[in-house]
């Protein structure tokens, strides 16, 4: 329902709802007043302000995560018109060009908490598993860090922009809701830390992790990840580099026993 004094131009949105972690999902449809330069977040904000379905049923505002709204925090990931994305940078004008209703669903590879909110703790746990940090001696004054070439900084900067959104995992055929595959995000972070002089002190441990079940060998090379990553992270390069260093590492281990 649209108040008569507001814009009369509306479009239809279909949101997949799920009340609790283990209840059955269902769809609700809303008509939303069109405004120029809307994104999917502003669609959900408009629905929250007036949570009435097209059938006139009063419902609850759909639950979704959001924070920065400029595609850098990784909160608002969802599947919109069948494609996983950050809802903040998905523009309504583009979606309307695709025709039909706009559909918004939660990611499918992570457990649903409620509606569009999923639990992505698995990604953070994996960062802990690979010891995703530079092992510094503490925060006391110990002078500058290692010098770095512009080329290496270029590579590390690109990798450091990973916002743990999980788009790459959503589209990966090898990564499923219940298997142990770590996926492109973590493999790329292994490369990130191993490319730092001090970070490399833990390189061996990280590569050991990559040799475990669910590690790099499970990558099927579908290359969907690199196409979808909103931060244009060179994921296939990362997988190739970590693959190579893991092979070298395992051969070395075989011969030296270390």
């Amino acid at each position: 329902m649209i108040a008569p004094n507001e814009s009369t131009k509306t479009f239809r949105v279909k949101v997949k709802r799920q009340d609790t972690a283990d209840s059955a999902p269902y769809w609700e449809r809303f008509d939303v007043a069109y405004k120029p330069s809307m994104n999917v977040i502003s669609v959900l904000q408009a629905i929250a302000m007036n949570p009435t379905t097209v059938d006139g049923k009063e419902t609850t505002p759909p639950v979704f995560l959001s924070a920065c709204l400029e595609e850098v925090c990784g909160s608002c990931t969802a599947v919109v018109n069948g494609q996983v994305c950050q809802m903040c940078s998905r523009l309504v004008d583009d979606l309307l060009k695709e025709g039909g209703e706009i559909t918004i669903e939660p990611m499918t590879k992570f457990p649903v908490v409620r509606d569009l909110m999923v639990d992505r703790q698995r990604m953070f746990d994996n960062l802990e598993k690979i010891q995703g940090w530079v092992p510094i001696d503490g925060t006391t004054s110990l002078g500058p860090g290692p010098k770095e070439t512009q080329d290496n900084q270029d590579i590390r900067y690109a990798l450091s922009r990973c916002m743990t959104c999980g788009c790459c995992l959503e589209v990966c055929p090898q990564f499923t809701a219940d298997n142990g595959f770590v996926g492109a995000q973590v493999i790329s972070q292994v490369r990130y830390f191993n490319r730092h002089d001090t970070g490399a002190q833990l390189a061996g441990d990280r590569l050991d992790q990559m040799m475990e079940p669910g590690g790099i060998a499970d990558c099927g090379n579908a290359q969907n990840c690199v196409k979808i990553c909103p931060k244009e992270i060179p994921l296939t390069e990362s997988i190739a580099e970590v693959g190579r260093t893991t092979t070298v590492h395992s051969i070395k281990k075989f011969f030296t026993g270390k």
Binding site: V134, I136, T139, S141, L142, G143, P144, G145, K147, E148, T149, Q150, Q153, R156, Y157, S160, F193, H196, T198, G199
Partner: peptide, 22 residues
């Protein structure tokens, strides 16, 4: 300056000069 050094040691990919300085 100490804060910059510290963050540099933690591995922040600060932009570099040709010689590799910040």
């Amino acid at each position: 300056p100490k804060i910059i050094d510290l963050m540099d040691r933690m591995g922040v990919p600060f932009n570099r000069t040709a010689e590799g300085n910040l």
